[in-house]
Design a protein around this nucleic acid. Structure first.
Lengths: 132, 132
DNA sequence: CTCTCTGCAAAACATTTGCAGTCGG
DNA sequence: CCGACTGCAAATGTTTTGCAGAGAG
């Protein structure tokens, strides 16, 4: 009943290396395509399974596009944080402010909620893309 | 090139009434099932099409669950706001704080972003559900 | 060896779309 | 009447799963 062991395999390495190679969030489909193009032999299902496992271990951040597609990226910090994402090029900045965390927590408590968590993403156009 | 006209039909009414009947967010699938149970004859595709139209007209709020399912609810206020949702029963409170709006805006600007928008949802267990 | 991992194809979902018939205005 | 709306079924696109064989420890 303890967590199942987690073996280190060629495919698993490939996925992690693939993630390391990108700054920004990638979808499972994307990552699979890139790995294949890079010469790795790996099944799509394995990419999904590996990403799910990484997410469960909190080794990757997961976010959903507005179209409902899941996108993944290795955590660059182990602490809680949010993202500022460029709508145009996907450039991502990690942001965090204790005040906002506090606000979310307090807001929940005021309404009698417990076990409070929250999701927050900021979208915009980065200076590089805006400088048309 | 102007917006297409929007006719008032039995099905459209049913969808809007169905939405009015729930405090909380419902998925298209859910809503469709409820309408059917309530005796309305309506196709699933029509529910989807109607909800999309309402979303486009900004008459409903849309949010994605972490599983990637879209959930809809009639806008109760026309202004920008966020939600505090009970993980257990779905009870929803609308929350808003200018300070957070301001923070998101400023954070984006500091990093050189423009056209800033953001998404924010708070999840927790409401007092009714917590009082096990 | 044993038990987890992998690949593939099929299945499961949510959502969209093509089309012929329906119906609001 | 005309064109937007509807239902159904088929098509899409993402993610999951069943199963037999491969490979890590």
């Amino acid at each position: 009943m303890s967590e199942p062991e987690r073996r280190s395999t060629r495919q698993r390495q490939a996925v992690e290396n693939g993630l390391r190679r990108t700054e920004d969030f990638v979808s499972a489909q994307d990552l699979h395509a890139r790995l294949r193009q890079g010469g790795d032999s790996i099944g799509l299902a394995t990419v999904y399974r590996t990403l799910s496992a990484l997410a469960q271990d909190e080794r990757v951040d997961v976010l959903r596009t507005q179209e409902g597609e899941a996108r993944y990226r290795l955590c660059s910090t182990s602490s809680h944080h949010h993202h500022l994402v460029c709508r145009s090029c996907g450039y991502t900045v990690e942001v965090d402010d204790p005040a906002v965390e506090q606000w979310a927590q307090t807001t929940g408590e005021v309404h009698g909620f417990s076990g409070i968590t929250h999701t927050l993403e900021i979208f915009g156009t980065c200076s590089a893309c805006a400088g048309s």
